[in-house]
Design a protein around this nucleic acid. Sequence first.
DNA 1: AGCCAGGCTGACG
DNA 2: CGTCAGCATGGC
Length: 282
Amino acid sequence: MTKYNCTLKTSCFDLERTLDCGQAFRWRKQKDGSWFGVVMDRPLFIKQEGALLYLSCDPLDAPFWENYFSLDRDYGEMEALLALDPRTAPALSCSSGIRILRQDPWEALISFILSANNNVKRIMGIIERVCSVFGEPDEFQGKAYHKFPKPEVLAASSPEQLKDCGAGYRAPYIVETSKRIAEGYDLPALRTMEFADAKKKLLTFKGVGPKVAECIMLFSMDFDQAFPVDVWVKRISAYLYPGEDGKKAAKAAAERFGVWAGAAQQYLFHYARTMGLKEIDA
DNA sequence: AGCCAGGCTGACG
DNA sequence: CGTCAGCATGGC
């Protein structure tokens, strides 16, 4: 029986959507409806009942999880922005309550390198196998799990091992990037840089292009204005704003949503996937 | 059975 | 600078 030692109050928050919308890949729904995940070596069971979150953690860790789930922020303003425009208002029915998580930059770096030209379900499987092979095993309240692998471990791995996990042609990118991190690269330092500088730094990592860089910035470095453009965002952009291709999407989003551009991106990404949006011809 | 997926790399104009 | 073939893998 899971012990929930900590309670957090929320508003405008949907746990399931937040954990299952494709921004993080390690959360799993349990048979009892709770969710289990591991963040920066901390295992957690969590469940939502109305406005309350029940966490299986020491109350001393409450600030850590409040930060992870961005509970300090009020998304009401951002949702009002979407509701105001009849084009984006429909997205709220499936995306309302999603929050941008504050993930571990190292895990985000590796995870989104693996995400390139891939789909969410398969990404989750690859990362799960990478963790079970290279991550430190542990146990929490009777639940066996693996921590996310340390940079030194992935740096010492071989592309063949990673291919066995399903990483495909991205395997050498993981090894090469991990080596740089293991050598002491200060990834969290990018948080405090200017947007363009942080992005430029991320682009120097093998396997990191413009889209992956902005995912890392949005999901783990507090860059609220990051706006990753993938195939789904291209589709939803063309669908909502005829004539707006992928290149114009980010600029237009900055004008429309300002500091909420990243959050809006995730709402629209989830909206597009939920309704199974297909390619639109001209 | 193909087509597609939170795209990137390297080559070539 | 922009364009583009090739790429591993497995779910649908």
